[in-house]
Design a binder for these strands. Sequence first.
DNA 1: TCGTTTATGTCGGAG
DNA 2: CTCCGACGTAAACGA
Lengths: 240, 240
Amino acid sequence: MTVVEELRAAVSSKKLVVLVARCTVTYEGRASSKLEEGDRVILIKEDGSVIVHRPVGYEPVNYQPPGSVVSVEGDDDGFRIIVTRTKRRERLLIEVHSVKHFFSAKLEDSARFTMWGDEEDLRRAILADPSKMLGENLKPVGAEVSLGSAGFADAVFVDSEGNLVVVEVKREKASVEAVYQLKRYVERIKRETGRKVRGILAAPGFTVSAIRALKAEGLEYRQVSMKDAREVLSRLTAFW
Amino acid sequence: MTVVEELRAAVSSKKLVVLVARCTVTYEGRASSKLEEGDRVILIKEDGSVIVHRPVGYEPVNYQPPGSVVSVEGDDDGFRIIVTRTKRRERLLIEVHSVKHFFSAKLEDSARFTMWGDEEDLRRAILADPSKMLGENLKPVGAEVSLGSAGFADAVFVDSEGNLVVVEVKREKASVEAVYQLKRYVERIKRETGRKVRGILAAPGFTVSAIRALKAEGLEYRQVSMKDAREVLSRLTAFW
DNA sequence: TCGTTTATGTCGGAG
DNA sequence: CTCCGACGTAAACGA
């Protein structure tokens, strides 16, 4: 069986394909790109994802997402892999000049992937123990509160004076962007409830301009650490 | 030579490595993750990038970016690939239980990659021919204008009445986020110059809430197309 | 180095 | 579907 025949068989039987080849890559879609001839690693997955990697760099130089349609034209003297997307008018064309390596196989992977220490954990910890995380006694009244066109507020509390407190959580250093996001939520809730609303940006750090903007907008901020969050959450899960 | 020896040799001689293996992957760094045993494709690049793909999905399940340090411990009965980052305290651990496939080679790829039809093209077209792109005669006074803590304005013009006009460009449908970005720039320039400042959001489309926010904030918007931008730019480059 | 923005972003989730 | 925000975002670019 030729490489092209093997490739076609692998694609139609939804095997994973690893192709190392000298090729030229063209993309037409939301943008356009042209990659001249060179050696690349091409990954074709069973779900129609196609990923083209150059010998350096984290990101693929070209790709198509899952659900794409892969077709192969030509023979071992030179063939083309054409990947089109069903929804958008997008086309990835890989012109293969010579194959350095070909591998295909049905891969088995039903394992669970778990991630922790992300923004969600920080948010959960703040909701679970606002006193420890924010240094203030707050009564939680909602999480991921939908604000319609304004988005979602990470957490909403009532403080000891009865004011609403909107908290926006960032897992990394918060920039000016986050300040205006918080401001949007505060304004929206103010308008909707007619009550006094405080806004708190909670993050492990803040850019100088973020702090300047916070002050200018009359918003507050609290430094929170993932370490504290872990502690709060481990106390919680200890009961389960 | 055993696979582990080959792998070590390939890594130290900065070859590209493709490893298809049954493995368990653990990550500790900004967050933490655990991926239980399954078949994966592991790409190790000459620049230290390591990318772990599951049989489905566009995105790698785990990775380390270029510049990481790759080390291999163990033998063919079971080995571990440890990838650490020099700057941050981050560690990726790939415990390889069995190797399904191994390939390594020095890849040659010095080709040029060009992309067009991105946001920069749209911006350049708007600056080159605001009349055609925005339907109004504007005199460009700056591009990528630094506004200190407020960020960067894509393009600044003066209109026929002598007002400053800040234009924020989006290559795709603009959302409420873009409106507030524009607002930030307008406010800042207003404060800095004391002049009347108009703000225009230029994009191929707008979400309903973006338009609502634009009106509420007294900002303008113009629909622009990448097609027109291409035309404008091709006219420009025709002279070169 | 830090800070800001873009991305063919992708992905997930709510409405 | 659309819309919105997070991402271990990464990568580029300027200060």
